[in-house]
Simulated scan of single mutants.
Amino acid sequence: MTDWTKEKTVEYITIQKHLHTKEKLGEYYDEWAPNYDQAVSSMGYIGPSITSNLLQKYVNSKNALIFDVASGTGLVGEVLANSGYSNIDAVDGSAASIDVARKKNIYNNLYVQWLGGDNKLNINNDRYDAIVCAGAFAYNHLKSDVFPELIRVTKPGGYILITMRTRWLRIEATFSDGKLEADMKKHEKERKWKLVEKKVKEEEDSEQNVVTFVHQVC
């Protein structure tokens, strides 16, 4: 196994900005999947724990049906399972990452699919009590065009939690200058969801600051 130091992981992550197609991004994560958990651990990745803590604030029932979107190898799902949630599904565009997640035996249903644009999930309306999505809004990853589909599969009154680095709100072109939050507000004006909390976790290295948006579906 490769020794994934923080420096090596940061270097590898910079490749993402050059991966402009889902095919290339999929190949990138398929190759990385066997070592992904070790790599992000070297960086002290806290997205899963932040997401779990906020989910527990809004969803009390540990039997609630949770959808882990852009689940990767299942790091968020592991934390949720350790927190007592027992009814979790997952979707990710990387088949190899889903294979790693499947072996952890924490998900009920796992889907290999890219989200965004015209891509629709083969899932009924109003299915989930909550959606969690950690670390997937970044260079060449998820964009705001996934919001309608996330809203569609979430029950009225359910929650959608999106956790991301604050740096992407500055440097990712489709998010910067308030674009991402403007798209969120557009759906709020249309009464599709409402923002109930925006929480920022500040780190010593400001480039590692994390923000979570919690919306409740109308």
Rank of each mutant, 00 (worst) to 15 (best):
V196L: 06
G26V: 00
E23R: 10
S61V: 02
V210W: 12
E203L: 12
G93F: 15
D177G: 00
D99Q: 14
G178F: 09
K194G: 00
K194Q: 13
F175P: 04
E78R: 11
S71H: 06
G158E: 03
S176L: 03
E172F: 06
G158Q: 04
I46M: 13
G116Y: 03
R165E: 11
G77I: 05
T2F: 15
D205A: 14
L115H: 03
I98A: 01
T9N: 12
S97C: 07
N109V: 15
G72E: 00
A173V: 10
I88M: 14
A130P: 03
L180C: 09
S94K: 00
N82I: 06
R127A: 06
Y28R: 05
V40M: 09
D183N: 11
V146N: 02
Y107P: 02
K201H: 09
C218E: 10
G157L: 03
R127H: 05
S61D: 11
P48C: 08
V200W: 07
W32F: 14
N63E: 11
N60L: 02
S83E: 13
Y58F: 15
Y85A: 11
N109D: 10
E188N: 04
F147N: 09
T51I: 10
Y139D: 14
G26D: 08
Y107R: 05
V146P: 05
A101K: 01
L115M: 11
I66R: 05
Y128F: 08
L115E: 03
K143I: 06
V200M: 08
K192C: 03
